[in-house]
Nucleic acid binder design. Structure first.
Lengths: 101, 101
DNA sequence: GTTATATATGAATAAATGTTTATATATTCA
DNA sequence: TGAATATATAAACATTTATTCATATATAAC
């Protein structure tokens, strides 16, 4: 029985990130940020038809975890992807056949 | 503002799968099943130093969700990956720099 | 200054998840 | 048959997560 190839630290980190993005709203946010480099809270809120507060909570959550970053411009705060690798994760799921799920 | 490229159904499915595997023990299991085609509950339990019951719960959980499948051979039940795409997800995280996490 | 708009924050709470413990079931072997 | 081993199940529980609501803060425009 061969060992896995990931050490414990790496397993923890991978799980941490996957858990951090494994939510419909957050996947929606990341998907939107894939096509648009930057989006304001309101942009996302309108686009995904989700409450401002809920979107804000989730954005801050992902920012706190190092997945997103943000900058202020006037009244708006624009979020963008920081951990670009999550795109690869989503892209590789996008291509596969998910009929059964 | 361009739309994202995933429809709602797909967003839900991707989130469903990422959430289903986004846990240290489950990533450990998948990592082990990446290197070993099949493993029994006990194999995994020993390898990851986790309780039989906890491992069983998690294996059944992922089986129920279509990520794993299993077969019985005598007293043992061998689990293996069904949704191979999850390997790609883990592999693409494996390569990226996760120093900050 | 006041008002309007955008975002953040915090409390409250429901719902989901992770974990342990004890027990049940299935299979093998003596 | 009974004992031993492997796995599943189910209850109980603590912890975490998702969501809403109300309110606070920051900036801009007047």
């Amino acid at each position: 029985m061969k060992p896995g190839t990931l050490d414990i630290k790496k397993v923890e980190k991978v799980a941490f990130i996957l858990k951090a993005i494994g939510n419909p709203l957050r996947i929606g946010i990341i998907d939107a940020l894939r096509v648009n480099d930057e989006l304001s809270v309101n942009d996302i809120s309108r686009r995904l038809q989700a409450e401002q507060s809920l979107v804000s909570h989730n954005l801050l959550n992902m920012k706190l975890k190092g997945i997103l970053e943000s900058r202020r411009e006037g009244k708006n705060i624009y979020y963008r992807l920081k951990l670009k690798e999550v795109l690869k994760v989503i892209e590789c799921m996008e291509n596969c056949n998910l009929e059964d799920f």
